[in-house]
Amino acid sequence: MNNKQIVFEAPWRVEVRETPIATGGLGAHEVLVKKKYTLISPGTELACLSGREGWFGMPGVPGYAAVSEIVEVGSGVKDFSAGDLVFHYGDHSAYQVVPANGVFLRAPQNVPPTWIPFARMATVAFTSIRVSNIELGDAVVVTGLGLIGNMASQLAKLQGASVYGIDLSQRRLQLAEETGIDAALHPDRADVREAILQRTNGEGASALIEATGVPKAAVDNLPLLAKYGELILLGSPRGEYQTNVTELLNYVHLINYGSISIRGAHEWRFPVARDPFVKHSLVRNSQIVFDLMANRQLKIEPLISHVLRPEQAAEAYEGLRNDKERYAGVLFDWA
């Protein structure tokens, strides 16, 4: 049986390959799945495609968000059967052998299949809420309103906060408004600090969720924070940035700068599976996200900009890189 895969061959070069896949010899806790839809994670995958992510080797198959149908299960898999529709951290390929004892969950029947891969984006964003002190009535600023930033905005709203988003893309600002943000601000068209102070009675925001991964964005927006506020690093910092680190540290150390806290919000800080001694886990967060989707509390449909064939992969990544006004949530349809 042949397997179709999207492959990053070299920096900024995307191809589709067909390679043989073995259909027998599954490990006891392994499952062979056939993909229905996979979702591009723009920040991570474009960073990999640039060739600047040391952990991603080229040629390599990107992707980590999938909804699939089970084809075959290993002898030790008891909770799943062939034909089940599942959510898992799958790559951009037609078939894949994956472990059934990680984040591997039955897809809820009351959620559209095209929404299911977005659970990965939501659980990534969820970490920013989990590590924070965001409470009912707080003001939160989110810098970067791509998929992760949009999800973080929606989750902060569900936490009871007023949420203000900042982005350079007019389309992303519009999507944020469609999904319920309190104010979507373009830094070239508004005095962002003045706008935040007006909306917070001059106090500033309780939390700043930095979702771009651009270090300069984190530092430049520190004046938006209130005294004892939190800078939450949701986007993985990438690229070189030189600044006066003393002034940055003064924001943490000195009361007249705000005595802020800096918190890391990488998703893997939590265990994968449920643990009786740890409240949060990736599995628990995923199950909560499914409930929010099923109850239509988390808005997914506006974020889907394209559903493309795998053969259109090069077009998809080019659009996400250079046409952010039209490309947002891009799914590959493997049917």
Rank of each mutant, 00 (worst) to 15 (best):
L233I: 15
I196T: 05
E318R: 14
V245T: 14
P276H: 11
I40E: 06
Y251W: 15
L105V: 08
G102H: 10
V245M: 11
L208D: 09
I148T: 05
Q174A: 15
N250W: 11
P108I: 12
G90E: 00
P99A: 10
L105M: 04
R171A: 15
Q242S: 10
E315G: 00
G165M: 03
I70R: 09
K324Y: 05
A205I: 11
Q174R: 09
L145Y: 09
P99K: 10
V272H: 09
V214W: 05
V97I: 15
I116N: 01
T212Y: 12
Y64H: 12
G204S: 09
L32K: 00
V97W: 03
K34E: 15
G180Y: 02
L208S: 07
A226C: 09
A107G: 07
D220I: 07
T179D: 01
V252F: 15
K34D: 13
I232K: 01
L282M: 12
G213R: 04
L208K: 10
P11K: 07
F80W: 00
D333H: 13
A205G: 11
E210T: 10
R189Y: 14
P20R: 03
S128T: 08
K36E: 13
D333V: 10
M151S: 11
V192N: 05
H306G: 03
I260W: 08
A313R: 00
A156G: 05
L173D: 04
G24C: 10
A82C: 10
E315R: 12
G27F: 00
G329L: 10
G229Y: 13
L282F: 00
L249Q: 10
G160E: 11
D79N: 14
V330H: 02
A28S: 13
D220F: 10
E203D: 08
R193H: 11
A217C: 12
V7R: 04
S68L: 01
T127W: 03
F332C: 02
N322K: 10
S236K: 11
D291H: 12
I6M: 05
I6G: 07
A22T: 12
L224I: 06
D182M: 08
G239Q: 13
G51W: 05
H186K: 13
A107L: 04
G57V: 11
Q170F: 15
V131N: 07
S50V: 11
S259L: 15
W268V: 08
G180P: 06
W268Y: 15
V14T: 06
G25V: 09
I40D: 03
A125Y: 04
I209G: 02
F87M: 01
